[in-house]
């Protein structure tokens, strides 16, 4: 099945979000989880494209586990 360290990485059924201008991981977490503090879940699922949770770019496609 999926990679134990990042199960969402090779899973085509993991929801995705295309970063819009003004988005932050907290805002995205608020939208999908109802709780901004869960942004780390999104950060961990996207470590292959994100080095810093505060630096996301419009157009980036992020996995939402």
């Amino acid at each position: 099945m999926a990679d134990d360290n990042n199960p969402a990485a090779d899973n085509p059924y993991t929801q995705t979000h295309v970063v819009q201008s003004g988005d932050t991981l907290s805002k995205i977490a608020q939208k999908y989880y109802g709780d901004a503090s869960l942004y780390t879940k999104i950060f961990q699922a996207n470590r292959d494209v994100l080095n810093d949770p505060n630096k996301i770019k419009p157009g980036q496609k992020l996995r939402i586990p």
Binding site: M1, A2, N11, Y13, L38
Partner: peptide, 13 residues
């Protein structure tokens, strides 16, 4: 994989 994706979301929610 569908079930994994669901389990992950349920755990986080």
């Amino acid at each position: 994989k569908m079930v994994d994706a669901l389990q992950s979301r349920v755990d986080i929610l």
